[in-house]
Computed example of a mutant assay.
Amino acid sequence: MPDYDFQSPRLFVGADLAENGTVPLDPSQANYLLSVMRLADGETVLAFNGRDGEWRCRIARTAKKKADLVAEERVRAPTPAPTLAYLFAPLKHARLDYMVQKAVEMGAGILQPVMTQHVQASRVNVERMRANAVEAAEQCGILSIPECLEPLKFDAALQAYLPRGPLIFCDEREDAESPVETLGKLPKGPLSLLIGPEGGFSTEERARLMAEAGVTAISLGPRILRADTAAVAALAVVQACVGDWRSAS
């Protein structure tokens, strides 16, 4: 990301972005810019909406606590949304927030909770998940927000994601050898990555995964990782071996 502006605040907006177009800010966004960041009328921020690239926008104050943005210049063209689907057994509260944020930073394009037999959290607040995804996207410079989907049961998740391409799952029982060679054999195209719960996959779930021709098991080393740590480790390995880290090099 050469010559990128890391200093200006970034906002995700729902409105279209076009030269001289006005973008209304919701109360929380206006409060962030005017009260938290203490930006004045006429100062600039960066805005993106997942469709029109990234724009430098001027703050146009409309009242003491209200403001719009006026798009002045497109600084980055739109880029394709990531195709990597991240499937995960939900965690509780703060650890799920952390995992979602890190998955966004690591380039996941789809966030899909999967209800496994040993799952820790029986419910997922998808709106909270999306809010964390938006915050992570604003901070790490990406131009799109991952799809944040409603939970699927384990079998339904396999039925939904196996047809789209290879599904990689992190198997704590797999031999602790490097996954690089294994991942290097996978074809290019959309991938799905499945991380299980803290207690691991059940015997039945692991057998079901190992029986599918489109599933590849990898090890994350000789140590048992927490699920949120495993997420970062697995996404890094996948992106480096078969993902957008390799294509960017």
Rank of each mutant, 00 (worst) to 15 (best):
E73W: 02
R76I: 09
R76W: 10
A81R: 14
A81E: 13
P82E: 11
A85G: 10
Y86F: 15
L87T: 02
F88G: 02
A89H: 02
L91H: 01
H93K: 12
A94S: 13
R95V: 00
L96M: 15
D97A: 11
D97F: 01
D97L: 06
Y98R: 06
M99A: 15
M99H: 00
M99W: 02
V100A: 08
A103T: 07
V104L: 09
V104P: 04
M106C: 14
G107S: 10
G107D: 12
A108F: 04
A108R: 09
A108C: 12
I110R: 05
L111H: 04
L111M: 07
V114A: 00
Q117A: 14
H118T: 07
H118S: 06
H118G: 06
Q120I: 12
A121V: 02
A121W: 01
R123S: 05
N125S: 10
V126L: 06
R128V: 05
M129V: 14
R130P: 04
A131D: 11
Q139T: 14
Q139H: 12
Q139K: 12
I142R: 15
S144Y: 08
P146K: 08
P146S: 12
E147T: 10
E147R: 12
E147K: 13
L149F: 00
E150I: 01
P151A: 04
P151G: 03
L152Y: 01
K153Q: 10
D155H: 10
D155Y: 04
D155L: 11
A156V: 00
A156R: 09
A157Q: 00
A160T: 14
Y161F: 15
Y161W: 15
L162P: 04
P163Y: 10
P163F: 10
P163N: 07
R164Y: 01
R164T: 14
G165D: 05
G165R: 02
G165S: 11
P166Q: 08
P166R: 03
P166M: 07
L167G: 03
L167I: 08
L167Q: 05
I168K: 03
E172P: 05
R173H: 15
E174D: 08
D175I: 10
P179V: 14
L183A: 06
L186K: 06
L186R: 06
P187N: 12
L191I: 11
L191K: 11
S192W: 02
G196S: 09
G196V: 13
G196D: 07
E198R: 04
G199Y: 01
G200A: 08
F201E: 05
F201N: 01
S202C: 12
S202I: 15
S202Y: 11
E205T: 10
A207K: 11
A213D: 14
G214S: 15
V215S: 05
A217Y: 01
